[in-house]
Amino acid sequence: MDFALDTFRWLTDPTNHSGPNGIPVRLWEHVQVSFLALFLATLLALPIGLLIGHTGRGEFFAVSVANIGRALPSFGILGIVFPLTLGVLPGFGYYPTLIALFLLAIPPILTNAYVGVQNVDRETVEAARGMGMSGRQVLAKLEVPLAAPLIVAGLRTSAVAVVATATLGAVAAGPGLGRFIIDGFVTRNLAKAAGGAVLVAVLAILTELAFGLLERSLTPRTSSQGRRRTPRAGGIATPETA
């Protein structure tokens, strides 16, 4: 158990909590780059997903994005983006990490928005149309609220993947908590590496829990269909979605 004790000592050592390489700075870097990547990906992918679901056009595109997103390894995205953007963008590891995380976050957000809107009961949509609602009103007042739990489930999948993959950015001098892991690993300071690993794991689990709570709060409980399980990457997949 010496290893666990050393890791605990590293995590609680006050000297690791201050300075430009301290835990708070690295934690902030990690959260900042993850949040910005998720925000930018949402800005792009959410409207496209909603539009595909609303119009029923471009479904092939949405399915393709989902399939490629699942098969493309996040480590591979980093590996390709890093050498290609080096020298093109300022800074060493920040922008390549941001771009890789942004690309990684797109597929789950886009797919879930599309599936969420598409799953809205067609009769309800037609009733709304019959009441004189415009296409835009149907989308804003009916489809988006009803699809909200699935949309948040997509954000959750992306957020957890982004927080996890931000760790890998440190392999090529990216920002964040992964630095502790890589630096500790390279200098054979296992307590440091493990301390970083614990911090990253806790951050990922907190991210999952936070989005899980948000998702639950948006899911209607009295619906006659009951609470639908939300299909997300790694979740229950019917043969059609696989």
Binding site: A164, T167, L168, I181, A194, G196, A197, A204
Partner: peptide, 14 residues
């Protein structure tokens, strides 16, 4: 499933 893969590998190394 949620624990990042690199973190899990590092914690197993000892």
């Amino acid at each position: 499933y949620t624990i990042p893969s690199l973190a899990l590998f590092i914690l197993l190394i000892p």
